[in-house]
């Protein structure tokens, strides 16, 4: 999948989470996403950026505009070198009971995306990739 544009943003403070939201919004506008899809992308990015900061101890996001001539999309890859997630299925179950902790952030980001991948190893870190197509 050809990458049209890409940029990396560090996530180390709450202000960085705000900056990631703004960068994702800008890319989504440039790629021609409508307002509802922009809002979904920015919200998913906010959830994952906060998880990267709070649970991953900080990290970075790679923001990519991708396209194959037929369609365009925005791909976000969040990476941290934190403690990792021991039970990904449990973390994805939605965790309403955890009052909006990791559970809702992760499962919510998945619901707001067209494609979702997560890789995590205890002690090594977590990588979450989401894509939304226009």
């Amino acid at each position: 999948m050809p990458v049209l544009i890409s940029a990396t943003h560090g996530i180390h403070t709450p202000e960085d989470v705000v900056a990631v939201r703004q960068a994702v919004r800008q890319r989504a506008v440039e790629l021609g996403f409508n307002l509802v899809d922009q809002t979904k992308l920015v919200t998913a990015a906010s959830e994952l950026a906060r998880n990267t900061l709070q649970y991953g101890g900080g990290g970075a996001v790679l923001i990519e505009g991708i396209g194959d001539g037929l369609r365009r999309g925005l791909r976000l890859t969040f990476e941290d070198k934190g403690p990792g997630i021991a039970d990904i299925d449990e973390a994805l179950r939605g965790g309403f009971s955890t009052a909006g902790g990791l559970g809702l952030g992760l499962s919510g980001a998945r619901r707001l995306s067209n494609e979702f991948q997560i890789e995590s190893r205890p002690g090594e870190g977590t990588r979450v990739t989401i894509t939304r197509w226009r």
């Binding site: 307002l35 509802v36 809002t39 979904k40 919200t43 309403f96 809702l104 499962s107 619901r111 707001l112």
Partner: peptide, 10 residues
């Protein structure tokens, strides 16, 4: 757009 997203988020 926020209301739509919020409900989809769960």
């Amino acid at each position: 757009a926020v209301a739509i997203t919020l409900v989809e988020l769960g």
